[in-house]
Simulated scan of single mutants.
Amino acid sequence: MTGTSRDALSAVLPTFGLRVRWDDLELRLPDDVELLALASLAADGVHNPEVAPFSWPWTRGTHEEVKRNVLAHQWKNRGRTAADDWALSLAVFRDGEIVGEQQISAKNFQVTRSGRTGSWLGLRHHGQGIGTRMRLMALHLAFEGLNAAEMISEAYDDNPASNAVSRRLGYTANGWRATVREGQSVIERSYRMTRELWDARPDDLRAEIAIDGASSVRQLFGIDQPRQSTYRENA
């Protein structure tokens, strides 16, 4: 997609104009050509075959099946732009090469200002610190770009990398639950990053991470509208 084409698309669907940049990393919605590259990356491997980090086993199957799962997921989330249910499934680029996906999603964000993150990296890009940096970029977008009050991250007990990132970044433990994954019981842990914890971080990422297009996305998602309240004074 050329710059002119993306600009025209962004005028209709502002999420395509959203960009988060930090040194060699960039988060943005992929166009259809880039989406095929993202799907191919996933088909080449996201995790070791013996582990299962996702509630839905979208990484299982043939190369073609995994690619279709990625395409279906991305196309579905492109259309999730309502104020009460939106998602940003952003491709992660490193020096222009697609290396994974970082998602932010929320329901009833206008009222709760609470969202969730999820992500994956191509297997060959593991162990390079990218996962930590792209989570920081997602949090920066959520708090500085979208005015979040809290962000939640969840990970299974047997996903040490994701759990470690949440702890390293200063999330607080937010409980756990027993859930079902591929027919087996597994513990899922929850972590919470509040606006207060984010603001108290010693590193000042505001000067390092750039966000483009957030204002139009806030309008699309209804974020700039006053929060609704059920409170009523007694007569």
Rank of each mutant, 00 (worst) to 15 (best):
His73Met: 07
Thr59Leu: 07
Thr59Gly: 05
Glu188Met: 15
Arg116Leu: 11
Glu101Ala: 09
Ala214Thr: 06
Gly213Ile: 01
Val111Phe: 07
His140Lys: 00
Asp203His: 09
Tyr156Val: 12
Arg124Trp: 06
Arg192Glu: 00
Glu182Ile: 12
Asp24Trp: 05
Leu13Gln: 14
Thr194Lys: 11
Pro160Gly: 10
Val20His: 05
Pro30Lys: 06
Phe54Gln: 02
Ser89Ala: 13
Ser153Met: 11
Pro226Arg: 00
Pro226Trp: 14
Ala87Pro: 05
Gly145Met: 02
Arg80Ile: 07
Asp157Ser: 11
Asp224Leu: 06
Gly3Leu: 10
Glu182Arg: 14
Val70Asn: 05
Ala210His: 15
Trp75Gly: 00
Val20Pro: 03
Pro202Gln: 11
Leu90Thr: 02
Trp56Ala: 10
Thr194Cys: 07
Gln225Thr: 11
Asn147Cys: 06
Phe93Asn: 00
Gly115Gln: 08
Asn77Arg: 15
Ser10Cys: 07
Glu208Arg: 15
Val165Asn: 04
Ala87Val: 11
Met134Val: 15
Leu27Tyr: 08
Thr81His: 09
Leu139Gly: 04
Gly61Gln: 01
His125Tyr: 14
Leu88Asp: 03
Gly213Tyr: 02
Arg116Val: 06
Val33Ser: 04
Ala39Phe: 15
Gln103Leu: 12
Thr15Tyr: 01
Ile209Glu: 04
Glu154Thr: 15
Pro202Ser: 13
Gln103Asn: 09
Leu90Arg: 04
Leu29Asn: 05
Leu9Trp: 06
Thr59Asn: 09
Leu220Thr: 08
Ala82Ser: 13
Arg94Ser: 03
Asp85Tyr: 06
Gly183Pro: 10
Gly79Glu: 09
Gly222Lys: 08
Asn174Val: 06
Tyr156His: 13
Leu121Trp: 02
